[in-house]
């Protein structure tokens, strides 16, 4: 018998979007493009159980309802397009600082940024540090909402290299992007969100 897909969603919906039926195997990336406001972020938030929704989601065949919400979100990690910061110091957001420094360096960031205040970060620095924060948790499923939106070409390449590494390690990724070229580069499958429904491009 074939093993269950890493991530599967069935009849997932809220008042604003859906129903969604998707399945992503280990090591695969589903890329989602679509106009602003079409429901891409709502889709990821629903999988992460951040907004009220109905339907069911499975991780490796195990239903979401069998997880506590915090345990589910540790395993199925959502990184928002606009990352939030809950203290003033960057370092407070990383439980494992040496690992954070190493990953910051790989994303082309100065390690000293980690010891500074969040207020002094640029938009691109914030985006990369938030990506690092999520990738460091080594979750089996990553829900990435425009992970490289505000980044320059070199930084996009570095971020994509890290994402490929996670895929090679068996993670499943659902990535929302505005860049069709990126969807083609990383995505094994590409769907388009139109008015709260996922359709082939």
């Amino acid at each position: 018998m074939a093993s269950p897909p890493r991530l599967r969603a069935e009849n997932l919906r809220s008042a604003l979007a859906g129903p969604f039926d998707v399945s992503v195997a280990a090591g695969r990336c589903l890329a989602v493009t679509g106009a602003s406001g079409s429901g891409k972020s709502l889709f990821l938030r629903m999988i992460a159980d951040l907004d009220p929704n109905t339907g069911e989601v499975w991780l490796d065949g195990r239903a979401r309802s069998a997880f506590t919400a915090p345990a589910w979100r540790r395993a199925v990690a959502y990184a928002a397009a606009e990352p939030g910061w809950w203290t003033e110091t960057v370092a407070d957001h990383f439980p494992d600082l040496p690992a954070a420094r190493a990953m910051a360096a790989r994303l082309g960031l100065k390690e000293a940024l980690l010891d500074g205040p969040v207020l002094r970060l640029s938009t691109g620095e914030k985006q990369r540090l938030a990506l690092a924060r999520t990738l460091l948790r080594a979750s089996p499923v990553l829900l990435l909402d425009e992970p490289t939106g505000p980044l320059d070409e070199d930084s996009v390449g570095r971020a994509e290299a890290l994402m490929r590494e996670r895929l090679a390690g068996g993670a499943a990724i659902v990535m929302v992007t505005h860049d069709p070229a990126q969807a083609a580069r990383i995505g094994d499958e590409h769907l388009v969100m139109r008015a709260g429904k996922l359709e082939p491009p």
């Binding site: 951040l50 915090p70 345990a71 979100r73 990690a77 928002a80 939030g84 910061w85 809950w86 999520t134």
Partner: peptide, 14 residues
Amino acid sequence: EKPAIEAQLCLGAT
């Protein structure tokens, strides 16, 4: 502070 609160939730906080 919604983004800050949800960022913590997404990293597994209660």
